[in-house]
Design a protein around this nucleic acid. Structure first.
Lengths: 122, 122
DNA sequence: ATAACTGTACTATAACACCCAGTACACACA
DNA sequence: TGTGTGTACTGGGTGTTATAGTACAGTTAT
């Protein structure tokens, strides 16, 4: 369900956070649906529960999930995602586009990459 | 010329590396032109020379610059930038676009962000 | 030749983030 | 009652980051 690479320079909790976010974005887990529990993810990924908890905290802070003690964590509505996240993504989009244009990639190719909707990332 | 925020979570050497890359991308420093020397940057930014050196190494590894002992570091040609950097940027572009669409941002707005060329990013 | 500048390479240290192990508490649900 | 849940601690190990200091070899201008 989620892939974690221990050799990757990126912290594990970020990889888990991004993996969970991706499940929500791609619709695998819809709004209101339950996310994997901390202990379940800890067991299936062979990662310390504290690290999973940290990923959950980060995801909740972004607005992509909310937690209910005793019940579990759930996917939030897209409208609950903070404005900071939107601004960061738009900044990333512009920065990547600008650098790619500097590198000689034609504008049409960039627009096509934006239009295309796929999930074959890493 | 380059801004460094010590309170930022991002490592200083990454901020310096990104700042130098931006100078090249925006055309402030053209291909073949000399980059600020390690010691000059170290003095003007009040940062240890080792940290600046690390930023230079990273930039050179990306292909954005090359160094000549005794002479200095210089901006490389866009064609010298590694293919890995291009693939990473395209991945970032797609990922950001996909998430923004999930958040309800209309496709036209994304395309406009890609077309627009500005330099007001941090 | 001399001086000043350049990239580069070491050693050593301190601070911090990351990840782990282990334990514990309170709540929800069947 | 038992199981599963989020959450909160303490400790310890490890690697990264950034620092200070020193040093060497090459280039450039005086």
């Amino acid at each position: 369900m989620i892939e974690v690479d221990f050799r990757d320079a990126r912290p594990i909790y970020e990889q888990v956070r991004d993996g969970l976010r991706r499940l929500i974005i791609t619709g695998v887990i819809e709004a209101g649906e339950k996310l994997p529990s901390v202990r379940a993810l800890s067991a299936s990924l062979a990662i310390n529960p504290n690290t999973i908890q940290k990923a959950m905290d980060a995801l909740e802070q972004e607005g992509y999930a909310y937690s209910v003690p005793g019940r579990g964590s759930f996917a939030a509505l897209p409208t609950d995602v903070g404005e900071g996240r939107r601004r960061e993504l738009l900044k990333r989009l512009s920065a990547a586009a600008q650098e790619l244009r500097f590198l000689g990639v034609p504008e049409e190719e960039l627009i096509e990459a934006v239009r295309k909707r796929e999930e074959d990332d890493r």
